[in-house]
Design a protein around this nucleic acid. Sequence first.
DNA 1: ACTCTATGCCAACAGGCGTTGACCTCTGCT
DNA 2: AGCAGAGGTCAACGCCTGTTGGCATAGAGT
Lengths: 184, 184
Amino acid sequence: MTARRSDATRAAILTAARQRFAADGYERATIRAIAADARIDPSMVMRYYGSKEGLFAAAAEFDLRLPDLTDQPTDQLGEVLVRHFLDRWEGDGTLVALLRTAATNQGAADRMRAVFTDQLGAAVAAVVPDPAEAPRRAGLVASQMLGLALTRYVLRLAPVVDMPLADLVTWLAPTVHRYLRAPT
Amino acid sequence: MTARRSDATRAAILTAARQRFAADGYERATIRAIAADARIDPSMVMRYYGSKEGLFAAAAEFDLRLPDLTDQPTDQLGEVLVRHFLDRWEGDGTLVALLRTAATNQGAADRMRAVFTDQLGAAVAAVVPDPAEAPRRAGLVASQMLGLALTRYVLRLAPVVDMPLADLVTWLAPTVHRYLRAPT
DNA sequence: ACTCTATGCCAACAGGCGTTGACCTCTGCT
DNA sequence: AGCAGAGGTCAACGCCTGTTGGCATAGAGT
């Protein structure tokens, strides 16, 4: 698969799709609008991505890019994780697109579930006291981090939006640390 | 406004609407499907609720029914709150409907914001060390509780779904307690 | 008994959607 | 130069949506 002449177009479509999906959610984002943003005909979207579902699947590829937690001092696990999530999300609307869509679209919910089960689950398993407890602890961490994403980026709850990143880290880090390390 | 002959119909519409909105989200839930569930003509929905937005507004009336927290022992505030939220949500799909819809619908997001700012904010203000910190603390509590609702009822993340209510309370209560009472 | 209004159904409209296929046009290869 | 194929446009289809207006009917108030 070498470089294609249409790579620029494909990329433009993906960029526009991420913005529209993030801003409007899956149902309200229309292929026509995405195509218009990318200054392209709607039928091109179909040609390159097959269907709206296919386009979303391509646009919602999401990697948490979690660092290797075993490199971190144990007592800073919570802080490192919270800060990483915030850094990862502040600049990239893909997570918001995925979150908005996962609320109504089965496929997006499946993918979101997979992202947090696989990626977060693996990272957490390495630093948890009892490996058998890893999924449960990862689930608890996910509930707090996704709750933050929901209230800050989707619902835009004023106090959570206004809170500086550093304060968020200070407040949430002990929670995440406890979910990871507290004895059962 | 006394009893109308159509009250049974109106109630049936609301019940069907809540189920459909909760199951499918705002966009995918159609007036036709809701009307079919209520064994009624779609035009009746319009007559009684004006529009789809109006129907949703009527169906998504939501009261957290928070208890007066000043009645509770200070050291059990977290436990009481977490248990109350879980009890309130396990049986009533309205919150899930609101949550699913708030992801894409501005009006629903506004209402969700209002519910947590007003109802939770007021309850929290009564038990917080410094009243000026109440909104921020309420926001933190909302982030954890809504994250739980998101992962358990919408995303259906396996470890969170499988966890018994008692375990959830045990894990989340200290988090909520800290958000409410920890010194800044 | 006779209205008159609320209740209900039916059929249709206009608009937007995802999707399709026919049709040009440019580019790289031989 | 000539050709094949990829890139791109255009117009349209079929479907489903929220919404509307007309028409039957039953039931309460007098």
